[in-house]
Amino acid sequence: MTVELLVLLLTAFMFLAALIAVETSDLLSAVICIGAAGFALCVIDLLVGAPDLTFPQVVVEVVTLVLLIRMIMTRQDTSRQTPRDTLRTAVVLAAGGVLLVVAFFAFGGLGAKGSVPPFGQPPMVQSDASLSAQYINGAQRDTGAGNAVMGILMEYRGYDMLGQAALIFAAILGGFVILRKVGRKRGESEDQA
């Protein structure tokens, strides 16, 4: 079995798991389905030559799953079984149909001249002048890293990394601020608090 076929099967699995997660009536099954889709994504990362992505994805997956299960386990789901919102569903289906058709031809379906490189031939393969080719050729020389992904992440795109650290800090701070129990009462002035 080729890698492409395996990836196709796993993407189909992810698609089905996502559909079930959205449509099932039980919230706990929905959360578990979303976890299944995430772990399938980890396997796809491993198959297409991205082991650097697999491990962060697994960690994020487990943390997300624990957070979501913790959130719904102690809380009653009182939502009523409301009839499907036909207008919104129709709008999404129409927008989705347009997106799929445009994407089909932009990605070179039916032998069309696509504006996106075809599957299996990233820009790096087609010309040496592309950014990826320059990065991968210079990574060892410029950064001393044997792993091109880490070389790019930590050295060429170091500011991204700095932004990520700031983002994690801001997210934890935001979570604490939103979840804290004691807050200033309305009408109470600054100096009294």
């Binding site: 990233p122 990574a139 997210a171």
Partner: peptide, 21 residues
């Protein structure tokens, strides 16, 4: 394989976790 999209995805994974929290 092309390393540049992988770097972008690595950034996105962290952003995703922060957003979910």
């Amino acid at each position: 394989v092309d390393p540049l999209p992988q770097v972008m995805v690595l950034t996105n994974i962290v952003v995703e976790l922060a957003m979910v929290v």
